[in-house]
Amino acid sequence: MSRIDIPAVQSATGATADVYTRVKKLAGGRVPNTYAALGYLVPPSFQAFLDAHAALALGSLSQQDLQTIKLLVSVKAGCDVCVAAHSFLAKMAGLPVDVLRAIRAGNATGDAKRDALIRLVSILQDTSGSISQDEFAAIRAAGYTDTQLAEISLAIGLITFTNTFNRINDTDVDFPNVD
């Protein structure tokens, strides 16, 4: 059970109600537990978070790339809510179950570009300091542009925020079980 109690979504008023209305438009009429808590606790900051996600969605990374990043970072952080959510969303973005299993395990998927992305994200999550010149060359050789490298960084930053909050809150998982 989540550690932080929040009022029922239906009782929200003011800035929180505004955030929930926005989330419902994005999430098919529902407010996932993580978003309900953050929308209640920090509505202006959460609006900025949603704005950053909207900007990222307009960027040059595909939804499959974004979900690959978010899923892998969530696995490495140990965030069961985000692993479930991004497994579900990755499947909706067209990634097959066997590819999702490989991403969660940190294994090769058979797609050279996706595997280069997995390698870069893994290195960034597992190490500190700058990546090596060889790693930089490898991700560029896989076809990722400088703009996409900035977008990868933003995607990692955004998912790290929700991973961290869910780990603090022990947020209840409200997405389907992972295959």
Rank of each mutant, 00 (worst) to 15 (best):
S2N: 04
S2M: 12
R3P: 02
I4K: 08
D5N: 14
I6P: 03
S11N: 08
A15C: 06
T16Y: 06
V19A: 06
T21M: 14
V23Y: 08
K24M: 13
A27E: 15
G29T: 05
V31F: 12
V31T: 07
N33C: 06
T34R: 14
A36T: 01
V42F: 14
P44N: 14
Q47C: 03
A52Q: 06
A54H: 09
A54N: 12
L56N: 02
A57G: 04
G59F: 07
L66R: 07
L66W: 02
L66T: 00
I69Q: 03
V73R: 05
A77N: 14
C82W: 09
V83G: 05
A85K: 05
F88R: 01
A90V: 04
A93W: 02
L95A: 01
V99Y: 11
V99G: 01
L100D: 01
N107H: 13
T109Y: 07
G110C: 11
R114H: 03
D115V: 00
L117T: 00
L117A: 00
L117K: 00
V121M: 06
Q125Y: 12
G129Y: 10
S130R: 14
Q133R: 12
E135N: 06
E135L: 10
A137G: 07
A141K: 13
D146L: 12
A150V: 12
I152K: 05
S153T: 15
L154H: 07
I156M: 15
T160F: 09
N163Y: 08
N163P: 04
T164N: 07
N166E: 06
R167N: 13
D170G: 12
T171N: 14
V173A: 09
D179A: 15
